[in-house]
């Protein structure tokens, strides 16, 4: 048995508004063509764990770009950039969509690409991934990990920067969707996840939802108390299988 090697590096990509965005990129060391994932970090920023998740996806046979959604706040550390973005109201949905579009094009331009691209996000990034699934053309899969605010029950949650709840774009989603949720989460709550699923059913969308008992929000994050190994391990396996089916086949180590 052997492991799949990988290459990871900092890259720039063509972001919203003609800006040059900063991103972390990881790809498996293989001669095969692979699918790519645009990985969206959570609100607190482009943190170490996001890059670890990018490497994890490469380790499991996919190329991954993790754009720094707060690169416009540079110079500074990712946490300082996040604090500045937060203080100014957070990134707008339009800007985020433009950035994800640019990251998607970056993936397709790589020699290793098989032409298929998924978008994946955690927490607020899960919301943004779902929104990208509805607003961007050309995505092959959507991975929503506990995206809060996909269904927005609080009118205050809709702002000038984020004026429409992502659920309202569900009708426009053509790619298959996977949702990973904790049954002790409050945002999204189990009731919101149930309503979300009903809308997907009503619209005839291709989706799979996986709900886990004993966990709340963010249970993949190994450095936080919310982490639960059993549920996280199973959740990742569900994600790999979903990506293998929709943007794969995933490349594996030989021998």
């Amino acid at each position: 048995m052997s492991y799949l090697g990988q290459v990871s590096k900092m890259v720039s990509f063509d972001a919203h508004g003609g800006a040059k965005g900063q991103a972390y990129y990881a790809e498996p060391a293989t001669g095969a063509r692979v699918g790519g994932v645009v990985l969206i970090h959570h609100m607190p920023g482009w943190d170490d764990w996001t890059q670890e998740a990018a490497r994890k996806l490469a380790h499991h046979g996919f190329a991954c770009i993790a754009p720094h959604l707060y690169f416009r706040e540079l110079p500074g550390s990712p946490d300082d950039c996040a604090a500045r973005a937060r203080a100014s109201g957070g990134v707008s949905d339009n800007q985020m969509i433009g950035d994800v579009d640019g990251a998607m094009k970056f993936l397709r331009a790589q020699g290793i690409s098989n032409g298929k691209v998924a978008v994946m996000g955690f927490c607020s990034g899960g919301r943004q991934a779902y929104l990208a699934g509805g607003r961007l053309k050309g995505l092959d899969a959507v991975v929503d990990c506990w995206g809060g605010g996909v269904i927005e029950d609080d009118p205050k949650g809709l702002t000038a920067e984020r004026p429409v709840a992502p659920i309202d774009f569900t009708k426009d989603i053509s790619a298959p969707i996977i949702g990973i949720f904790g049954n002790e989460d409050k945002r999204p709550s189990p009731d919101q996840v149930n309503r979300h699923e009903q809308i997907l059913k009503d619209l005839g969308k291709t989706y799979e939802f996986h709900r886990y008992d004993g966990v709340g929000h963010g249970f993949f994050a190994a450095e936080r108390p919310a982490y639960k190994g059993e549920q996280a391990t199973d959740g990742w396996k569900k994600v790999y299988a979903f990506l293998d089916k929709n943007i794969g086949p995933r490349v594996k180590a030989e021998g």
């Binding site: 959570h42 609100m43 607190p44 920023g45 943190d47 990712p78 946490d79 996040a82 604090a83 937060r86 203080a87 927490c123 709340g216 929000h217 963010g218 450095e223 936080r224 108390p225 919310a226």
Partner: peptide, 20 residues
């Protein structure tokens, strides 16, 4: 001062009260 409650960047907590 900016005060908020969210996932922290560094503290090993699920949520934290942050002050900048």
């Amino acid at each position: 001062a900016h005060v908020y409650f969210d996932h922290p960047y560094d503290a090993p907590l699920d949520h934290a009260l942050s002050i900048d």
